[in-house]
Computed example of a mutant assay.
Amino acid sequence: MSALKYKRIVLKLSGEALAGDKGFGIDPTVVDSIAAQIKTIKEENLEIGVVVGGGNIWRGLAGSAKGMDRATADYMGMLATVMNSLALQDSLEKCGVDTRVQTAIEMRQVAEPYIRRRAIRHLEKGRVVIFAAGTGNPYFSTDTTAALRAAEIEADVILMAKRNADGVYDSDPKYNPDAKKFKTLSHIDVLQRGLGVMDSTATSLCMDNEIPIIVFSMDEPENIVQAALGKDIGTIVGGKTNGD
Rank of each mutant, 00 (worst) to 15 (best):
L148I: 13
Q192W: 00
G49L: 03
D189I: 01
L11M: 11
T142W: 05
T241C: 01
L18M: 14
L79Q: 13
G53R: 05
S171M: 06
T40G: 00
I115W: 03
L18T: 07
T135F: 06
I38L: 12
A35M: 07
G63Q: 07
P177K: 13
I224E: 05
R59E: 09
N242A: 10
C95P: 01
G55H: 12
S200N: 13
I105M: 13
I188N: 13
V50T: 07
I214Q: 12
A119S: 15
I224S: 06
L185W: 11
E152D: 13
Q192G: 07
L61V: 14
D199T: 11
I214K: 07
V52A: 09
N84R: 08
G194R: 05
L185E: 10
V168L: 01
A227G: 06
G55V: 02
A19T: 04
I188E: 14
K231V: 03
R118S: 12
F131A: 01
L92T: 06
C95Q: 11
V10A: 03
M160F: 10
S171G: 08
M198G: 08
S141G: 01
E222T: 05
P138Y: 13
R8K: 14
G63E: 08
K5S: 13
M83S: 04
L159V: 02
N45G: 00
W58A: 13
K42S: 15
M78I: 10
L148V: 14
A146F: 08
S204H: 05
K39T: 05
R121Y: 08
F182L: 06
D32V: 03
E112C: 02
L92R: 04
G77W: 09
T99V: 03
I214W: 02
S217H: 05
D156F: 11
A132P: 03
I41F: 09
Y169D: 09
S171T: 13
I57A: 03
I120A: 03
D90H: 12
Y169F: 15
E47R: 11
E220I: 14
T201W: 00
A19N: 09
K12W: 01
L46P: 03
Q192M: 12
E152I: 08
D90S: 14
A179N: 11
Y6T: 03
M207V: 00
E16P: 12
D172C: 09
V51R: 10
D27K: 03
V128Y: 07
E43I: 01
L11Y: 04
E44G: 00
R59L: 05
S33R: 15
K12P: 00
Y175S: 13
G60F: 07
I38E: 02
K125P: 00
E16Y: 06
I130N: 05
P173L: 02
R100S: 01
I153T: 01
G15E: 08
I48N: 09
D189R: 08
E154L: 07
K180Q: 12
V237L: 04
G194K: 07
Q192K: 15
T201I: 14
G63N: 11
A132C: 03
E124Y: 04
E44V: 00
P221Q: 08
S204G: 13
N137D: 09
L79S: 01
R118K: 12
K174I: 00
E210Y: 09
V190Y: 10
A71K: 11
D27S: 11
Q102D: 00
Q109S: 15
S64Q: 14
A35Q: 08
E47N: 05
A73M: 02
G234A: 07
Q37T: 07
V51Q: 08
L185I: 10
